[in-house]
């Protein structure tokens, strides 16, 4: 019995080491904050369109599943995912909408003019309030929303080809069928 007390530190440490091992597991980003908005209705928005007199409003988008991508011209990782967004819109023809988060409209427009415009429509969220309502804590972030306006999935950080092929596209397909 008395010897067990001396074993306690070792047992506690092994438990700790086990936790560390779990924390180190690959493909687990501890910095990623899971969204609490999943399975909840997307917050309503009605944003002025970029280079477009038509506003970007949630109500108008409902009826089909769609993807919203928060981006900004000042955001470096956004450039990283840009080619992928172009592919998504040009090859996969997904309903991709952009929200220019805390960005000057002229800068956003210049970005899209230089690198191509993957979005069906872009809304201007200059004060970042729509982003805040979505729980955006950094750009880029990408949301998949179903036809009823319920948030199904969030991607934090630049999209990767893997995430697009294995998660985003299958999810959209599933949402489109149901």
């Amino acid at each position: 019995m008395k010897r067990l007390v001396y074993l306690l530190p070792l047992v506690l440490f092994m438990g700790l080491a086990g936790y560390f091992l779990v924390a180190l597991r690959p493909n687990h980003d501890v910095h990623e904050l899971p969204s609490v908005m999943i399975d909840k209705p997307a917050p309503a928005f009605d944003l002025a369109g970029l280079g477009d007199p038509k506003p970007l409003a949630l109500e108008a988008l409902k009826g089909h599943p769609f993807v919203i991508n928060f981006f900004a011209s000042w955001c470096v990782p956004c450039r990283l995912e840009h080619p992928l967004l172009m592919r998504l819109s040009e090859q996969n023809h997904i309903p991709l909408y952009g929200i220019a988060y805390k960005d000057k409209p002229a800068d956003s427009a210049r970005l899209l003019a230089n690198f191509g415009d993957p979005y069906r429509q872009v809304g201007i969220d200059q004060d970042g309030r729509v982003g805040l309502n979505f729980g955006v804590y950094g750009v880029p972030e990408t949301y998949v929303i179903d036809s009823k306006g319920i948030i199904q999935k969030r991607f934090v950080g630049p999209l990767t080809a893997e995430a697009v092929d294995k998660e985003l596209l299958p999810l959209l397909k599933k949402l489109g069928q149901s």
Binding site: R3, Y6, L7, P9, L10, F13, M14, A17
Partner: peptide
């Protein structure tokens, strides 16, 4: 740590 605590036990 594991080694020294084993020795300790």
């Amino acid at each position: 740590i594991g080694g020294s605590l084993t020795l300790y036990a």
